[in-house]
């Protein structure tokens, strides 16, 4: 198909990681794609995959769901930056207007032993689910709506809890961390409950459960580079990690077993 060159069209040279399964050897494949500045990065990959399918080759596997920056699925490292070069932006919200005609872009999966590659750019991030299940919840009666103001929450704590709850669990923090540590994710998921009155009954067991699960999953240890905070598409602050450290120490002092 001959396409007329439109205003805003860009020729992009993509180097995309191809890997057939967990532990299989992988390599970059080079492809040239015509993009438009209005496309998102995922749409660029869609165009590439269409080209591949039309020529009878395997498309690249990559995860996506909402395409509006809130689901945390589009995990990929673009030129050494999780979710690409734009601050506080997921790959699906990264638009090709960030690039120039002729740019060469390298895409690879999250790399961490706790996130094994499923295929190509897709990784298995169920380690996050298990951390969440180890204490990232509150056991409250959800039967009927409680009266407003029945449980007072101060504004500052509500704001901090909300900021922590903005975490979409995409794993960019692990991907960006030189040690592949999951402390930013775990601390955000812990903080969103611990800062609120509803989170108090399970406060200690949450801290112990989530941190122990995080360690069991094979993530590295935080060495306070703060690369995670810089990579986080939701701007989750490393003060959450400090809170998790306090919570874990506190829970250790209070534990009875």
């Amino acid at each position: 198909m001959i396409q007329k060159k439109n205003h805003g069209d860009l020729r992009i040279v993509l180097e995309v990681w191809r890997q057939n399964g967990p532990g299989a050897p992988g390599a970059f494949e080079e492809h040239e794609v015509m993009a438009n500045e209005h496309m998102s990065f995922l749409e660029l990959l869609d165009v590439l995959n269409e080209q591949l399918v039309e020529s009878g080759r395997d498309p690249f596997v990559f995860e996506h769901d909402c395409r509006e920056g809130i689901c945390g699925s589009c995990s990929m490292t673009i030129d050494g930056k999780p979710h690409g070069p734009r601050d506080r932006t997921t790959a699906c919200q990264l638009h090709m207007r960030e690039y120039r005609n002729g740019d060469r872009v390298r895409v690879e999966p999250w790399r961490a032993n706790a996130f094994p590659v499923v295929k190509d750019l897709m990784t298995d991030r169920s380690a996050f689910d298990r951390i969440q299940q180890a204490g990232g919840y509150v056991s409250i009666n959800t039967g009927s709506a409680p009266d407003a103001h029945a449980m007072p929450v101060n504004k500052e704590n509500a704001d901090m809890a909300f900021d922590a709850a903005a975490c979409i669990g995409c794993g960019a923090c692990v991907a960006a961390c030189p040690n592949a540590s999951a402390m930013l994710f775990t601390s955000a998921k812990l903080s969103q409950y611990t800062l609120l009155p509803q989170g108090q009954p399970e406060r200690d067991q949450r801290a112990l459960g989530m941190v122990d699960q995080m360690d069991a999953e094979g993530f590295g240890n935080c060495t306070n580079h703060y690369e995670c905070e810089a990579a986080c598409p939701k701007g989750i602050s490393v003060t959450n990690i400090a809170r998790m450290n306090r919570e874990y120490a506190r829970a250790t002092l209070r534990r009875r077993d």
């Binding site: 490292t77 030129d79 050494g80 930056k81 790399r111 590659v117 040690n179 592949a180 993530f219």
Partner: peptide, 14 residues
């Protein structure tokens, strides 16, 4: 914790 290394240089500048 990261046996398969990144092929691009990883860095957010922090």
């Amino acid at each position: 914790s990261r046996s398969d290394k990144y092929q691009s240089s990883l860095g957010m500048g922090a």
